[in-house]
């Protein structure tokens, strides 16, 4: 349960809300309407769940939990990609899934939804599958040979889209699957999976984001990059240093954007919701910040951020062409590893 009743309507949240810059979204008003009248506002759907407002709230209102609870059982205003990922998650939630099996390794690696991204986001010209192959190469380099976990979707998107029933089914299956496998550490390359397994599952085993493991690769990379903190890895989980260290320890210079770490701007679309002209403004703002660093590579650790920045980059006939590569952390490092061989 959120502690939303402790809100005293100061409005600080609205003032710092990135969505307020581009829309009428008001976290304060959403809380007020819900608390006083039990009314649903559009704001609960346009919220990016970026996690910026709870960091500033004097009453420490847990706005993320509030939004998630408000959304339960209701129909989202806008789901991007014609709802294909939601349908896929729902369909898989109603199926038995792959047979649980014992793992040979104490480590499990969960690739997330990159396969489906590759199939349904083929327009953004991004090889999502490379995140998995890269991760395996890097883990191999540091001596980890994980079991690839044949699980269902972690349920992140459906949970944040208000479909808790679907999430619960996915979660039940995945927990059983992980238990049966006997692994002790679950590694994921995806910021959303990481947040979900860490905070929404209660697994009882160690959950690790791959960036935590990559500072010991021993690479000597001479490159300037900038790093985009995904909301899920950054503010949701407080993991700011590990990905940076994974870069700097391997020789890379990280040039910070105007807003970074706790203050990082959102890519504009979380949980595949609200892809529109408002959130595009956020995406442009973020890409402009990245470009302003002078770095030629933008690194991120969330496959959705990757897709969204690349979508902006691959626009047909774009107003502005960005001369900057957008690359997943593991992919970047693995390519350097290969190049150094």
């Amino acid at each position: 349960m959120s502690n939303v009743q402790s809100c005293y309507q100061c409005g600080k949240c609205t003032s710092i809300c990135p969505m307020r810059r581009v829309s009428k979204t008001s976290p304060r008003s959403s809380i007020y309407n819900s608390n006083v009248y039990g009314l649903e506002t559009n704001g609960i759907w346009t919220c990016l769940t970026c996690g910026l407002c709870p960091m500033e709230c004097p009453q420490q209102v847990d706005f993320l939990t509030f939004v998630r609870e408000e959304r339960q059982g209701k129909r989202p205003l806008e789901v991007a990609h014609l709802g294909v990922f939601t349908e896929f998650a729902e369909l898989s939630s109603k199926l038995d899934g792959a047979r649980h099996q014992k793992s040979d390794s104490e480590y499990g690696y969960f690739p997330g939804c990159v396969d489906q991204f590759g199939l349904f986001l083929h327009d953004v010209k991004t090889n999502f599958g490379e995140i998995t192959t890269s991760s395996m190469k890097l883990l191999d380099k540091i001596g980890i040979k994980p079991q690839i976990m044949d699980m269902k979707c972690c349920g992140h998107d459906v949970l944040w889209q208000g479909k808790k029933d679907v999430f619960d089914r996915l979660k039940k299956y995945n927990i059983d699957h992980i238990k049966e496998s006997g692994i002790e550490t679950l590694i994921t390359g995806c910021a959303e999976c990481y947040r979900t397994f860490s905070k929404d599952y209660g697994l009882g085993i160690k959950v690790v984001h791959i960036s935590e493991l990559l500072d010991k690769l021993g690479l000597k990379i001479n490159a300037d990059v900038t790093y985009h903190d995904p909301c899920r890895l950054g503010r949701h989980m407080g993991m700011y240093d590990a990905p940076r260290k994974a870069l700097t320890a391997n020789g890379v210079t990280v040039k910070e954007m105007e807003h970074s770490k706790e203050n990082a701007l959102c890519c504009g679309v979380s949980s595949f919701m609200n892809c529109n002209e408002q959130t595009k403004a956020l995406r442009i703002a973020r890409m402009n910040e990245a470009e302003a660093t002078g770095a030629k590579t933008l690194i991120t650790t969330c496959s959705k951020c990757l897709a969204h920045f690349n979508c902006l980059k691959t626009e047909k006939d774009a107003v502005k062409k960005y001369d900057i590569d957008v690359v997943d952390l593991s992919v970047f490092l693995a390519r350097q590893l290969e190049a150094g061989k």
Partner: peptide, 27 residues
């Protein structure tokens, strides 16, 4: 909702969709 990505332009066999320049003001 249009983000101007041009996907529609690429799939249409009749050149019915086209991209035009616009200045968007969102708040």
């Amino acid at each position: 909702r249009c983000i101007g990505c041009g996907t529609c332009v690429a799939v249409c066999p009749y050149n019915a969709p086209s991209l035009y320049d616009v200045t968007v003001k969102v708040e």
